[in-house]
Design a protein around this nucleic acid. Structure first.
Lengths: 243, 243
DNA sequence: GTCTATAACCGGATAGAC
DNA sequence: GTCTATCCGGTTATAGAC
């Protein structure tokens, strides 16, 4: 097996990771806008054009950061999920772990979020490009539910992970805008809202709640089902004709 | 009273609005990124630098667009609120009106949202800069509640407008990512979720729901209270020393 | 084919003359 | 209040070295 496609590696891979490290470091130190591609290149000891050989754009360097964060979060959650057995504790653990991981990156996360908010960005959490990552995250919440000894109505059980994922997105949104010292507000919010969520879930099992629960779930399923199937016919692209 | 501060006007004001009209028009026709400041200037018959005399940045031209949309929405809602008397109908009317107003501006709205997501943007709906607009919006929802003949628990009544405002933000978020034909999905979502919200509100009055409702409200109040008070001491700015 | 370097280009933003 | 001339930084084109 003489690798062909993968001949990239070695020196190339080293250069690549060097650029990324430098970029991440400089982003943290001086902020994103203040860090120029030229500075990154210089600091990494390569020519400007070269950084573009490895990273299609400055934005993509953030994406690399995002993936790193994502992995770290998973690792941190692992510990919690191996230990806790109640839904509330598991959820709290996952949320706290995540917040702990992103804590040192508040500024950069704001940026990330901004890019992610663009419907056309590959980082957008609802886009098809990020489906893999999204699935992974939802699976994490699936495990939160599955591994707990709490009782959850069967129909809710299927959709609950998605709901928790949405909940977690809301918390991140709050965190990004949280200017309080060490994001104390967010931590309080998590502590209290997790309790609330747990309470809500247990209430959902009451017989009285059946119809309401069913409406919510029906709506969720209908909307979530193929949210990304572009029913809108693609308009022929003007630009293609020009090139 | 010989106006001094306001001597801006006349020719200036004309130029200003000409630039804005041209910009909005071009944004709609060719998209934001594809419209250059140079093109706007040319089309408006002024020099590039001059557009910057009136608008501090390209982004600020979007802000102008935002304000226009905002006003249109209010006007559209007025009609509905004068007519409908049930909470559900009023809420549905407001949501539908808003969607109708923004419907032709899907592309631009995505952009707007992206900028708005930036915690540092003045457009950010949670920022102090946009407090006025936010208050205005919440007041709209306050009127939705107040003008209805439905019964709402007193404690909930105070916070409900804020909750509805958050709900409406969620809908907008969904709409921005909705690629379905004429955003049919979003319309369905609104139809159904409005019913759900109405049901939820009436359920909130049940005696059983008292404690739960109280927890939710307590949390909401605590978090909403002074969300923007920056408890974090401002770090001395390195850049200042350099200049 | 993998990688590096140099010189542009392009468009947002600013300075400063008039 | 309007212009011209520049800056600045992300991005691309291109030429060639390994």
């Amino acid at each position: 097996m003489h690798r062909k496609k993968e001949m990239v590696t070695d020196k190339g891979e080293q250069t690549r990771s060097r650029i990324m490290e430098v970029a991440l470091h400089m982003f943290r130190e001086r902020g994103y806008e203040e860090t120029t591609m030229r500075a990154i290149a210089e600091q990494a000891g390569v020519a400007l054009g070269n950084t573009y050989y490895y990273f299609r754009s400055k934005e993509q360097l953030i994406q690399a950061f995002y993936e790193r964060i994502h992995q770290e979060t998973f690792a941190a959650c692992r510990t919690v999920l191996d230990k806790e057995r109640t839904l509330q504790a598991r959820l709290l653990g996952v949320m706290s772990s995540m917040l702990a991981v992103i804590e040192p990156h508040h500024h950069l996360s704001g940026l990330l979020f901004k890019t992610a908010a663009d419907p056309h960005s590959p980082l957008n959490p609802f886009s098809s490009e990020s489906e893999a990552v999204r699935e992974q995250s939802i699976t994490l919440f699936r495990e939160v539910v599955r591994g707990s000894k709490d009782r959850v109505p069967a129909d809710l059980q299927t959709e609950l992970p998605t709901l928790l994922w949405l909940y977690h997105m809301g918390i991140v949104l709050f965190w990004i805008h949280d200017a309080s010292l060490r994001h104390a507000r967010t931590n309080r919010l998590v502590d209290q809202s997790v309790k609330l969520v747990a309470k809500l879930i247990s209430l959902a099992g009451l017989p009285l709640m059946g119809p309401l629960r069913k409406s919510v779930l029906r709506l969720l399923i209908e909307m979530g089902g193929d949210a990304e199937a572009p029913e809108e016919p693609r308009v022929p692209d003007q630009k293609d004709a020009k090139g």
